[in-house]
Amino acid sequence: MIEIRAAHDRGNVDMGWLNSHHSFSFGQYYDPHHMGFSALRVINDDTVQPGAGFATHGHRNMEILSFVLDGTIAHKDSTGNVETLPSGEFQLMSAGRGIYHSEFNPSQKETLHFLQIWVEPHEHDTAPGYQQKPFEARQGLVPVASPDGHSGSFVIKQNATIYQVTLAEETQQRFAVEKGRRVYLHLIEGMLEINGINLNPGDGAKVTDEFALDLVNMGTKPVLALLFDLP
């Protein structure tokens, strides 16, 4: 079964300096029908104005993945990491027993556009951790985070694997779904068909009880998406 979470149905919070679209309940946006999916708790599509950002705040027992789509993030946290994330870069922050951090758009001219994703961990109160790197946007599925860090992916504290999906024009990719697993797909760019169902940018697809997913680029531009293989 595939249930579509349409982009235009997402929660939206516009604070002037921040315009955020929430795939699942978050902050001021609450929808009891969209509280997360398996261990996936948050997908926020954030646009931050020049010179603005999130002041220092805390997290605990959450795996927090950021993917910069346009612009740059200036990151600072309580474990001593002071980093810059340019467009195309991923960051995984394991909050563990507690971490404080800030995220700002350091540019005075350009907006920052990024995805912030929360995955609930399967172990709590561990030491905080930080990982950051770009992943090659090669054809097909590239693992970004996995329990064992295979293929150079981040190590995530959950029995979940997150893939970056890139499909060139007129190409397709099959993803085999292990029995009992669930999948969530979030389309970032392009026009994608999943098992005969069309998705537009910002749409998500909740997948249960499917043995395979056929992903087809239906447009004239490359497809960019994230695929979550979940328990």
Rank of each mutant, 00 (worst) to 15 (best):
E3H: 13
L18N: 09
H21I: 02
H21D: 10
H22E: 09
H22D: 04
Y29I: 06
Y30K: 14
Y30T: 14
H34N: 13
G36S: 10
G36Q: 09
R41C: 10
I43T: 09
I43Y: 07
N44F: 10
Q49L: 13
A52D: 04
F54L: 12
F54P: 08
H57Y: 10
N61H: 08
S66E: 07
F67T: 02
F67P: 02
F67V: 02
F67Y: 15
V68Y: 06
V68G: 08
D70M: 10
G71S: 06
H75G: 07
S78F: 10
S78V: 11
G80A: 12
P86L: 08
S87C: 05
F90Y: 11
G96A: 08
G98M: 09
S102E: 14
F104D: 04
Q108N: 13
K109A: 15
K109G: 01
K109C: 06
T111K: 15
T111M: 11
L115V: 05
I117V: 14
H122A: 09
E123H: 13
E123R: 13
A127S: 12
G129L: 02
Q131G: 09
Q132E: 08
A137H: 10
R138Q: 14
Q139I: 00
S151Q: 15
G152S: 07
F154E: 01
K157F: 07
K157A: 14
Q158S: 12
I162N: 05
Q164Y: 00
E170L: 04
E170K: 14
T171M: 03
T171W: 04
Q173S: 06
R174T: 15
R174F: 03
K179T: 15
R182E: 14
V183Q: 09
V183C: 11
L185E: 01
H186V: 03
E189Y: 00
E189V: 00
G190E: 01
I194S: 02
I194C: 15
N195Q: 02
P201L: 01
D203C: 03
D203E: 08
T208R: 15
D209R: 12
A212C: 05
L213K: 01
D214N: 13
M218I: 02
T220S: 14
T220P: 00
T220Q: 13
A225Y: 01
P231R: 05
